[in-house]
Simulated assay, not measured.
Amino acid sequence: MAGALRDRVAVITGGAGGIGRATAVRFAEEGADIVIGDLAPGDETVALVEKAGRRAHYVRTDTTSEADCDALVAAAVAEFGRVDVGVASAGISSAATAAERQARVESDAGHVVNVSTDAFRRVMDVNVIGVLQTDRALARQMLAQGDGGSIINIASTAGKIPLAGASPYCVSKAGVWMLTKVMALELATTGIRVNAVGPGYTTTPMWDVPEDSPAHRQAMSITPMGRNGTPDEQAAACLFLASAESSFMTGQILHPAGGQFTD
């Protein structure tokens, strides 16, 4: 797919690391200029995009702020003149630290009957409201341009597989998947395509549990290929959905997930 995004402009939230960073680099390798929105510093991603021969711009963005999402897209237009592709990759697995998440997997502390409403709400705010506000800002700009575009939401297999102790994450990712389908239907006649990538367990800062841990063993028990995915593998799925290779696809979800769904 060499040059699949030549001279396109892509906005990527969560682009400072993980799947977002890998997607930014892959898109740049395929010819796109990149605008990175993240709360974390984006210097490293900017450098990687520029190393790939394309331009990059970082905007500090809290996707739970509608004003920040609108400002991110406005900055992309000011910097590069338009927006062709958007990837809503910003997300969190829980409001807990990595150590707290591991402890909750090994107990019932994260079960619905015990999880705090504030913790549940925080995940929903980032993973659902943040994606909504990102997608809306992208779609409004694409509608104004009048020549279509591609919006890609990062969901998860957890949106379809209930995981004990992870109710906020599972529910939020199911929400992302339904939001994707509704927006795809609403925008189908405009040339704006809305699809999702639903990763399985992927080696990122979000999934940082030791291989000898109960959490990792449980994850591999439902992953037939028996390994974690990589951010680059998720980025490849995003590239397909961003490119003309998927021009007749909208309202769909791809699962680079090591065989978690084989039906």
Results as ranks from 00 to 15, higher is better:
L138Y: 14
V126G: 14
A184G: 10
E29V: 04
M249N: 13
N114K: 15
A219F: 02
F248Y: 15
A196P: 11
I253S: 04
G198H: 08
E30R: 08
F261Y: 14
R82M: 10
N228S: 13
R193L: 04
V73I: 15
C170R: 04
V25G: 01
R21M: 03
M1C: 02
T64G: 13
T180Y: 10
T189H: 15
R6L: 08
A88T: 07
F261N: 03
G17N: 14
V123A: 13
L72G: 02
T61M: 02
A109K: 15
D84V: 03
A137K: 14
L48N: 05
L241G: 06
D135M: 13
G175R: 05
V11Q: 10
A32E: 09
T180P: 04
C170T: 08
D135P: 09
A2Q: 13
G200T: 07
A2W: 03
A16Q: 05
L163P: 01
K173C: 00
Q141L: 09
V128E: 07
G18Y: 11
G15W: 00
S116V: 03
V115R: 14
A237I: 00
T63N: 03
A96E: 11
M124E: 03
A56L: 02
R60C: 03
A244S: 15
G229E: 04
A235G: 06
L241R: 13
T13Y: 10
D263M: 13
E106S: 11
R193V: 09
G14R: 09
G148W: 10
G146R: 10
P210S: 02
G18H: 11
E245Y: 08
S172C: 02
F240R: 11
A242C: 08
W207Q: 06
E186D: 07
D62W: 12
D68C: 01
A98Y: 12
P205I: 15
T189N: 12
L143Y: 06
A219M: 06
G149A: 09
A67G: 05
S243D: 05
A158Y: 02
